[in-house]
Structure formats: C-alpha cells, structure tokens
Design a protein around this nucleic acid. Structure first.
Lengths: 352, 352
DNA sequence: TTGTAGGCGTTATCAT
DNA sequence: ATGATAACGCCTACAA
C-alpha cells in the first residue's frame, strides 16, 4: 500500500498526532519537530489519503458541476472559468453532463452527495424547478449559473438576459427595422431563452410594433438549427429585414443560409446573435451580438459559491455579469444622432 | 449527520453486515431479508458514504481528466465523449485544466492520487515526456488522448495525424498545387502538431516538392492566430495557391483574412483545415478538412482505460480512431480521373 | 443465512 | 509541546 502518516511518524520519530499537526500547520508544535516531520514527508513522498480525511472531517474541498450542452463555445468557456477559479480557491471539480435530462441530473446529484461535495454549480435549464426542490432538501450550497432564478432562496449568477435582448431589439427598431424575425432557444429551456423572449416582447411593445408569435422560430442553439430556421423564416416571411438569433451559433447558421441564397447582409437582412463568442469576429460579415463573458460567469459563480460555503454574509445572492451590444458588420450602424437617442433613453428594463 | 448503514440496520432489524451485503448484492442473503433492508434504505433515503467505502476498498470509481485548452470545439466534444462513456461505465470524473503548464499538471496529478482515482486520462501535449515519468511512478492506469506516444508501455488513443496530414497534402499536390503554405500548431505542442508536420513533409517529398521551413507559420489553434498567420503568408509568399491549417479554427481565421483582402477561395487560394468541427459546414465557403470525431476519441479513451483498470488483456495499447478527408467548397475538387489516382495509390504511410 | 469484530488512514479529545 | 486513543462509516474475514 501507499505511504501513510504512520510511516512518516516512524521515520521522523514522533507520534501520529504530531505529524497530523504539522500537516495542518497547527501552531502548537516546536519548529524543530515540524522540520523533522517535513523532511520525512518529503523523503517518503507522502500524500494524504483524502478519503480518510473526508471521512473524518466531513468536508471534501470538492465542488460538483452539473451541466448540459457544455460543448457550446460559450459554456465551454464558462467551465474554464469555473475550473480556474475553483483551483485558485483550493477546490477540485467533479464534473457531470446531464444532457438536459432530469434523471441524469438527479443521478449526479446523488453521486455528488455521496462524495460529500462542499457545494454545487448547476448549469442546466430544462427542469430546474424540479431540481430546486431536491437541492433545497439536500442542504448543500448551490449556485445556478444558467439564468435568473426567481426563488429568493436560490443564489444565481447570470447575464441580464431581459435587458440584453431588449437592447438588441431596441437598436434594431431605432435603425428602422419593423419586420424582425427571431430564432429562439428550445422551448424546454426555461431560463435564458425565456428571459430573452421577455426582453424582446418588451422592446417590441415600447417600439409599438406588433408581437407575432409565428415569427419566433424554435432552434436548439446549434449552427444547423439556425440554418434551417432562417430557411423557414425567409419562406414564411419574405418581407423580413432583420433576424435576431438567441445565440451566436444559430446566427452563423442563419448567415450561411442567407448568403447561400443570395441575400446581402446587412443590406437585405440584418443579423444579430447573442453571447459574443470568438467566432463572431471572424465570420464574413462579422457578427453583431450581445457580448458576455462565459469565463467571467464561471469565475463569479465559484466566487459566490465559495462565500456561501464559508458562510460569509452575502450582499446579494443574485449576481449579474456585464453585457454589451457589440455592433459589427452584420447590421447597419446607427447614425450618430440615432445612437444618441439610445444613449439618453431612460432605463426601461429592470432586473426581474 | 447523515443517515448511515447503522440507521438502516436498526430500522430493518438486521446487522450492519447484512445491510452491506444487500447493498453490494451479495448472493448470500435471504430474499426476504434483502427486501426488508431495501425498504429501510428507501424510507431513510440512505446514501452511501463514498469516502468510507473508498477508504476501506481503496477503489473509487473515479477517473481523473487533465486537459488543456478544452474550450476548443474539438476538445470540448472529446470531453463530452469521455463524460458520457465514463458515466455509462459507472465512473465519475474529476476534471482539471492544466493550461499546458507542467506545474499545474503535476499538481492535479497529486490531488487525484490523493483521491485514489482508478485511472487517468491525459489530454495534454506540451510536457508529456516529463509527465510520463511521474505517471509511471504513480502506477495508476493512464491513457493519453492527445497524440501518439511512442513509449510502448503507454496506452494512447488518437487519430493518425501523420496519415491524415499526408492525405491533405497529397490531395492538394494532385490537384496541381505546388506552392503551399502551412499554419502549424504551437511548437510547444509535442504531439499532434509535430505529427502533422511529419505527414506534410512526407507528402511533399513523395510529390517531389521542396520543403521550405519558412512556409510553416506557427499558430496557437485560435481563430486569431489563423488570421494573422494568413496575413504573414500572403505578405511573404504572394505566389501561394493553398493554405493548410492544422486545425479548423485557424483555417476559418485564415479564410476571414483572405476574403477581407479580396482573395477568392478556392480559386485564388485553397484552404484546408483539420478536425472537422461542426462550424466548417456553415462557413462560406464551407471548409475542406480532416474529419475526426472528438466524441469518439473520448469514448474510446474511456473504453481503453476501463479495460486497463479491469486488468483485461489488451489487443493493443495504441488505438487509432478513423479519419477522412472531407472535400468541401474551400478547395477545388479533383476530377474523377485524378481522384482515381489517389484511390489506387499504395499505402505509403504507416502508423508510427 | 446472519452477526461480530477488526481495521482502512485520518482528525480530535484527552492526558501527560 | 507531544502522545495515546477513540471515533468517522464502511467492508470482510471469521464465527455461529
């Protein structure tokens, strides 16, 4: 078997407890003794047995992450942010993908509980309401990182999807677009996509444009679904002048369809995405989009979770990360005057 | 504290060992007793304490994954494949990103050892030689999933990078391209990028074209590096007719530069990528590339690792996943006759 | 078929 | 300042 504290104690000529004290930097140990122990640790290349420690202390320095569709660039960066900040704070990560299925989510929740995780980050949108109950029951610190959770007990970190979607439509209408179609996310997505929908509706109402549910085509956040949604849109609504896709991949898929079929972007059709993934800077035309940082989202999620685990007082358990509309080639820019009218507009959208 | 086996035993009116037997489906337990126990388990919502089990059995059903740059679409899919197959086989995942830094890799290796992982998957290319030594020392089953490892003791799963890169250049030369430039990976990447380089050199030699190291521009697998590499290439080698980028993102970055500067693709410049990420089907022009499945790569890696953990006899500890050259709009297709000359060619490249 | 008891490697509570 | 000892929750001989 592996080297244990016992071996270290023997080599250093001290007792088990002393070794333990040294390893946990207890102050009540003579420097000389500590030195002996450390030497023995190094010599034997001793590694602590985490299971034994966890069994005894009931704290694991382990954070569980349950996600879905994490191969999407935005979410891949989210995971990267989570990992980096977790490492920084001394946590290791248990990672599971739920494919958006409730059963798998439950399953991972159980596994993670069995491993005595200190906290959990949920990046999942379909059955979050059902999850909420389980999670509350489990009494494990949790942070949602996939949208706004209205339950006041549940901490979450997210972009302000309503405001961001509002900004997009607001910009488009001020640029003169009256006939806009939308590629929304899956109806199963109860968070981000629904929130963006609300932002869109709000902006349409303010601009006194009609809300026509037929113009919202369902996609699933893939290139392919953006492509085929664009096809549907142009067939059903040939008079459309702008398309707002609820993520960048769908927007890129739509652009491919449009260009393939002879539409000029932005002159015939303006296209806007959401997320601000790197790709958007390298398409032709480059992609106008809502820029938000997945990495930042991940980082903030761990930060919040860490505070909850440490039982610190929270300022707020709802955290928003910044976003901004980045206007690139896929839409026509507003004139300076038109732009000013936006800058001065009153804040119409609040965070709920 | 949580519910333990003791509580279950008491409620079911049996002893601890009986409960343990039931939970591990030992055959030596009366069905009736088993039923009682299971009822108690359900009633109390008992969850095993994994740390205690691991401490006792010294096996964790935990697999460690150390990667770098996992936000790249190909690698994100690799992780997805790993996760799916690991779950299928009853493993949970500990995931760590090394940023390609040796120190972080070492660090995670230690952490994972402390957690008594059953095996480890390494997706890292920079210092793999240094890692090898540590890993061998640790005596933990390992699989490399990022390139061919020549050390016969070390299992790995990978695409045949040499053959694939050869295929690309072979196709280009037969299509008449004599002036080809390359966007390679980081020189620090000691695996995939180096192997592709070898495939390229081989094909150039066979085609009796000169090898000119100046025509290999270093990139880092990002869009941005592809863009700026293309810029360098066109400035230094205006007579170039084809660019082969060692991954799809760099190819897309290059395409953006070329189109932005008035080059027609493929007529002025042909462009080929590597990986076959989904995006390549939606660019304009669509991207010619080597298609390999990251998901499949992940799946096979776990499959192999699982066999090693179970101490099954291996057919081979070097596993190759399939690849194929997918010709899309970014290069001109070969005529049927030219194509035939490839199909009939003798296999010039072997797997080492 | 079931129960008893010892031990996995730590930490924490007592003494000393 | 250090050491002996009892848990933590589980598995597994061995005994019954």
């Amino acid at each position: 078997m592996d080297v244990t504290m016992k071996d270290v104690a023997k080599l250093a000529g001290v007792s088990l407890s002393t070794v333990s004290r040294v390893l946990n930097d207890s102050s009540l140990v003579r420097e000389e003794t500590a030195h002996k122990v450390k030497k023995a640790v190094k010599k034997l290349d001793y590694q602590i047995n985490d299971s034994a420690r966890i069994l005894r202390t009931n704290t694991s320095n382990l954070i569980g992450v349950i996600g879905a569709g994490m191969e999407r660039p935005f979410l891949a960066n989210l995971l990267k942010g989570i990992e980096a900040e977790a490492r920084e704070k001394g946590f290791a990560l248990i990672y599971g993908d739920s494919d958006g299925e409730f059963e798998k989510e439950q399953n991972y929740l159980n596994i993670m509980k069995q491993k005595k995780i200190d906290g959990i980050i949920l990046i999942t949108t379909n059955y979050y309401n059902d999850l909420l109950n389980i999670v509350k029951n489990y009494q494990i610190p949790v942070v949602f990182a996939s949208g706004y959770i209205s339950d006041p007990e549940i901490p979450c970190v997210t972009v302000d999807n309503v405001a961001a979607a509002y900004d997009v439509v607001d910009y488009l209408t001020r640029a003169g677009h009256k006939e806009i179609a939308f590629i929304k996310g899956p109806d199963l997505d109860l968070l981000a996509s629904q929130e963006r929908l609300r932002g869109v509706k709000l902006a349409l109402r303010i601009a006194q444009l009609p809300y026509n549910s037929g113009r919202f085509i369902e996609g699933d956040f893939t290139f392919e679904s953006g492509y085929s949604a664009a096809e549907k849109i142009m067939r059903k609504f040939p008079k459309i002048t702008a398309i707002f896709a609820f993520n960048d991949e769908m927007a890129v898929g739509a652009i491919r369809y449009l260009k393939e079929n002879g539409y000029q972007i932005p002159d015939d059709i303006a296209v806007v995405g959401f997320d601000g993934i790197e790709l958007g800077k390298y398409t032709l035309p480059t992609l106008t989009t809502i820029e938000q940082s997945g990495y930042q989202l991940g980082l903030k999620s761990i930060e919040l979770l860490d505070k909850i685990i440490a039982e610190e007082e929270l300022e707020d358990n709802k955290v928003f990360i910044p976003h901004k509309l980045v206007v690139r080639e896929s839409i026509n820019k507003l004139s300076a005057k038109e732009l000013a009218s936006i800058k001065n507009k009153e804040v119409l959208v609040t965070n709920n």
